[in-house]
Design a protein around this nucleic acid. Structure first.
Lengths: 241, 241
DNA sequence: CCTCGTATAATTGTATACAACCTTGCCGTT
DNA sequence: AACGGCAAGGTTGTATACAATTATACGAGG
């Protein structure tokens, strides 16, 4: 859950710790740091030109976000995502994105709805052109709009957490053009349901959207990529008891 | 979401930072620190006999758990829970506890089921006697068992976070004997559905259980207690822009 | 009497020094 | 050659010192 207010961002923007935190999160999610890689305080501090203190504090945040795992007196390691984790996240997200869409139907503002339409329109264009990077960006933004529109700081923050968490995996699997197009069609349906004020339908569609996204990932070989991460993770665990 | 592994606990148990973190969390949830109260690093450090460093790191964890809010260069303040927050949490929990019960139906172990039965049996006893403290404790434990039984570290951790978060409120509102008894009856129904292997029913019942709990809170005057927290929170926000 | 500015105190942010712990590799023993 | 202990190096944990920022109080000016 963590916190869910704006202070958070200002906090991250203007303090060294915040900048280190954001940098490291970015690097982990983008895959610059690989799974189970060790993060050393001094090395990162030197690289960013700061002392260990802000680095350590950033580590604590990363740990709470689930991106790294800190083993006392030993080190900080990038956490691995197992195939089961991804499955669980999509199960949870399916329900919560549904709830979010339902709430958004009542609370969405005119501006948000317009940005959504624009987003879908643009995504159509990029789908035709085969611009995968832009597609991914627009997909992120679509869900972000939805999160904002539900008018629940808590739900918004929770969904954002989960969304961020699977970014690493999604980058590899959404990169198929056919799914990108289908996904955008589903976005359109959700948007139309919200526009029509049909909260129940919007919920159902958002629900389904997640399930489809997951099914697609499984089809494209999620198992092969992250299937064996489980053993390594457990191995790391036993080492510290 | 935060992290969801066991290291977490060992981490908290054996390090100063961990102990400070647990102590402060305990104190906030138990109400020793009131809402919007300022937490000063040196004062807490002296009280616990540690330096500022572990206190600061504990603060970062508490912030990520949503229990305090850190305003840069200003201070750390205990976050307030608004009535809307509580409502949102129960909406989310309703879905996720349902999912949890559904999954648990497939995955629950014999030992867990037995502990559940014992829990309900004991709660019946304490309900008769009017032992409110024990009732609350057993209620916590019932849900914990369910979280463990769903066999999803992620869902377990997420639900635990939310559950912890509303503890502050629940302490005051579950303290009515009639609700305690009704709640335990609902627990029994959920348990029986799981025992019978009816995942759909278990999900529905757990779903309903949360809604009932929330409705009861509203009836018992949740609004009056936490209604005005919103203004104070926003006031605190604007001060830092 | 009120307002604004400045100086001082208090508090957090960061850097660094020291302590505790873990890892690693060498060496001696078996 | 294999095993175990011990020492040295490295890494994290904690404490403390210093810098930067913010709050407070006091006084000058209107």
């Amino acid at each position: 859950m963590t916190n869910y207010d704006k202070m958070y961002e200002t906090n991250d923007k203007y303090s060294l710790r915040g900048r280190v935190f954001q940098k490291l999160r970015e690097d982990i999610l983008s895959g610059k740091f690989k799974e189970h890689e060790e993060l050393k305080e001094v090395a990162i501090g030197e690289e960013l030109g700061v002392s260990r203190t802000p680095v350590r504090e950033a580590f604590r945040q990363l740990e709470l976000e689930g991106l790294i795992q800190i083993i006392p007196n030993k080190g900080a390691y990038v956490t691995g995502i197992t195939a089961k984790d991804v499955k669980d996240i999509y199960m949870i997200r399916s329900l919560l994105e549904g709830l979010c869409a339902r709430l958004a139907t009542e609370k969405i503002t005119k501006e948000q709805l317009e940005e959504m339409e624009e987003n879908i329109y643009l995504a159509d264009f990029h789908a035709q052109k085969g611009h995968l990077d832009q597609m991914a960006e627009l997909d992120n933004r679509f869900h972000d709009i939805l999160y904002e529109a539900c008018d629940s700081k808590l739900l918004e923050h929770t969904l954002r957490d989960f969304h961020r968490y699977v970014l690493r995996v999604r980058q590899k699997t959404l990169a198929t053009n056919t799914r990108g197009r289908a996904s955008n069609d589903e976005h359109r349906q959700i948007m139309e349901a919200i526009k029509a004020g049909d909260a129940g339908l919007a919920e159902q569609l958002a629900n389904r959207h997640m399930i489809n996204a997951y099914d697609n990932m499984v089809k494209n070989g999620l198992k092969e990529i992250y299937g064996e991460a489980t053993e390594e993770a457990t191995k790391a665990d036993t080492g510290s008891k």
